[in-house]
Design a protein around this nucleic acid. Structure first.
Lengths: 251, 251
DNA sequence: ATGCTTTCGTGACTTAGAGTCATTCATGGG
DNA sequence: CCCATGAATGACTCTAAGTCACGAAAGCAT
């Protein structure tokens, strides 16, 4: 019985201090920004709190005053990073109109562009997901489930309402599967650290990637989709990649 | 362009020293054992190299001599832990005979028992997957793909040969999907840290878990399976859980 | 055995960096 | 103008990883 779960439910760590701070929010914010750069650039361990303070021209103690610990600081950084991402349903209206799987396709094709435009928050989320500590990880998961920053739940409901997702599978199950696979698929698409041999040898071949994305979607469709195509009839998932149009970044 | 991937392919870190050591392997081994206990009990960061040395009655320097760094030590611990797990096809012959999805079912139902019998290596793998550092994580992934310690590739081939898995999807894709989802499903089943709301409120209800496992398998079956039931005809995935028979642990 | 070489073990030492705290400073409300 | 409260400071502590010069032991010849 000992071991795994230290206690059934333990109190939330890293609570964002008493929640009320009039104008020094500004400073907090500056610290978070600087810290995000450092964490992204050097990773969690190699990033030094002292350096962050130096860069801002403030005392190290000040950072600890605001965030309590390095972990606490990172947690705030993580939240900001993740909140800066688009939600599924932020896809353009015409894409949404084309249905659930088109929206998914839309985002998968764009992950790479979005990343290269702005790799810092992505890197932070990677660190939060894999590169810090299990204790922090628990906190992060709590955050992810309560806040649902990618809007997965709403997205799944959208798919259900359109009759594109099967109603005989629990919503939570669909959400989890979607979260897990999309997250890892994107990670594999993007990073050397996590590439599980799926894209290892062919990272230079965009059309191969395209094919992978298509295949991945077909698979997901079988897993959680109904057979039916919703809304305006479409033969199948789409034959060719659309020209990368209007890629404005949300938020 | 800067950032994410520090370099295309960098030299393997944590190489296991020149590969030849006559009899001090014994000591190495003792250290790894002790370290496994400590890492499992306290987590990566809270485990102290000094403590491990103390427990063994040796000098701390000695550990560094053998493993170079704390990371290096952990990597060895991780490898040992993961290698101690059963491979998919280690399931009993009669289960194998019943087919791919029966094997999967077999292991999912048992994860909990296996864990409680012997939670230490499981905890280590959790730490390796989520709780250390991205640099180490990369090394770990290299290991996982080259060594395939769960025998996923062989298992998928097994499913393909039996005609239970679709041949129109790349093998790597199937392997990846399987690895990702099963890993996370198990994690969710077992740990508070990673539970993505799937089992959160109902961890005390075994029959609910059962239902989840069943649902998860149906979903996977649709995703990567052919419709056909291989071998001896079976109506569907199975109506009731078999009594937990012969649960001998492999390796 | 006796040297000679190579590996192993040691523990005192260095170093880095997180976290603390008594004191000083700012600021806004009366 | 003055005091109370919160913010900022930087010198300090402390912990734990990592180093290294030296001594001990273990091969391995002759």
């Amino acid at each position: 019985m000992g071991g795994i779960a230290s206690s059934p439910i333990d109190p939330p760590r890293y609570v964002r201090t008493p929640l009320l701070r009039p104008r020094s929010e500004a400073k907090r914010s500056r610290i978070i920004d600087a810290a995000m750069q450092h964490f992204a650039k050097h990773g969690y361990h190699a990033a030094r709190v002292g350096d962050i303070a130096d860069e801002l021209g403030i005392a190290k103690g000040s950072i600890f005053q605001h965030f309590g610990s390095k972990d606490g600081l990172f947690f705030e950084v993580y939240k900001r990073a993740v909140r800066s991402f688009s939600k599924y349903l932020d896809a353009p209206a015409e894409v949404r109109a084309a249905g659930f799987f088109e929206v998914l396709y839309y985002w998968l094709v764009r992950t790479e562009h979005l990343l290269h435009e702005d790799w810092i928050p992505y890197r932070i989320s990677l660190l939060g997901n894999y590169g810090t500590d299990l204790v922090l990880k628990r906190e992060i998961n709590r955050f992810l489930t309560t806040e649902d920053p990618y809007g997965t739940v709403a997205f799944v409901r959208f798919g259900l309402e359109r009759g594109e997702l099967r109603k005989d599978t629990d919503v939570e199950m669909i959400v989890s599967i979607l979260d897990w696979t999309v997250e890892r698929f994107q990670d594999a698409l993007l990073t050397a650290e996590l590439d599980p041999a799926l894209f290892r040898r062919q990272s230079q071949m965009p059309e191969k990637k395209e094919a992978r994305i298509r295949q991945f979607l077909e698979l997901l469709k079988r897993a959680i989709g109904t057979g039916s195509v919703a809304g305006k009839a479409r033969p199948e998932i789409r034959k060719a990649a659309p020209p990368v149009a209007a890629r404005k970044k949300a938020l």
